[in-house]
């Protein structure tokens, strides 16, 4: 379980990192927290020729509020986000979901930017960012652009990142009054990748649901939203009947993959149960 030989580059600034990325193209990989990349290298599942270590790049780990958005640097560690008062206040769905992410040593090293660039379908954060309508800021040596989270994830372990591009920041709209958030998940062990996870954001005004967003993890594609189910919820009082109906709809709407620990049928059952729980919790928090 040792990686094959590779070259190691440690840029001291973002332009240097982007230069290295441009130079090495598809053979280069960004090393952030390394919590997925390094094990995959040790198992020789991936064999990058060059590792570009961005851990010394200054300014990439910030967590701050900028206008109406929470801005998270790509190098912000899971542990920092889990413990961040800003995250708790402005993106409670992320704070709630982080309770399920990895174990202490993993969270100490792993980064949000690395997590979404890896785009594991069982990971929580793609679903959270999709539900929050976050945008992903990416840069290459030549240009920078932003990609909506829902469009960033293109498939299992696949993103919209082009060759030479890296994630630099994540922007999440600040939580608004009347909004409630909840994350529910089922994993064989706490901290493992989800068999199924459901994140819910609802906005309640005048006793009615005015906005609903549901992101699911553990399905075929990371960062999946359940837009049909969301539409059903808008206008309801989020009462038990509405939630039960939505949970059943969610069960039908998801496109689960079969994994080693859970087949598609079981995942649908999990989604129904978890969606009902998450919706009820989010509703209660919205009040």
């Amino acid at each position: 379980m040792k990686p094959p030989p590779f070259e190691y580059v440690r840029p001291g600034s973002l332009p240097e990192a982007l230069d290295a990325l441009a130079r090495h193209g598809a053979t280069g990989r960004i090393l952030a927290g390394g919590q997925s990349l390094v094990p995959m290298m040790n198992l020789r599942l991936v064999k990058p020729a060059v590792l570009i270590d961005i851990n010394r790049v200054p300014g990439l780990a910030e967590i701050r509020v900028d206008g109406g958005e929470l801005v998270i640097g790509a190098l912000a560690r899971h542990a920092a986000l889990l413990g961040s008062a800003l995250v708790r206040k402005h993106c409670p769905l992320m704070a709630d979901a982080y309770r399920w992410v990895g174990h202490g040593p993993i969270r100490n090293r792993g980064t949000l930017g690395g997590n979404i660039s890896h785009a594991d379908p069982a990971s929580e954060m793609p679903a959270v960012l999709a539900a929050c309508d976050a945008t992903i800021g990416v840069r290459s040596a030549k240009q920078s652009r932003t990609i909506p989270a829902a469009g960033f994830f293109t498939g299992a372990l696949a993103t919209a990142l082009a060759e030479g591009e890296m994630v630099t920041e994540i922007r999440v709209p600040l939580a608004q009054p009347g909004q409630g958030a909840a994350w529910e998940e089922a994993a064989n062990r706490k901290g493992d990748f989800a068999m199924a996870g459901v994140g819910v954001l609802v906005t309640v005004a005048g006793g009615k649901c005015t906005h609903a967003a549901i992101g699911v993890a553990g399905m075929a594609k990371p960062g999946t939203r359940l837009s049909a189910t969301e539409k059903r919820l808008v206008g309801t009082a989020l009462d038990a009947a509405a939630i039960a109906a939505a949970a059943r709809a969610a069960r039908e709407e998801v496109r689960p993959s079969t994994s080693y620990h859970a087949d598609a049928t079981y995942k649908r059952e999990l989604v129904e149960t978890l969606a009902a729980r998450a919706l009820a919790a989010a509703r209660d928090r919205a009040r």
């Binding site: 064989n188 062990r189 706490k190 901290g191 493992d192 080693y260 620990h261």
Partner: peptide, 13 residues
Amino acid sequence: RHRALREVPLRRE
């Protein structure tokens, strides 16, 4: 690989 995927129960389990 499947053996490697087996989940060893940890303290929290």
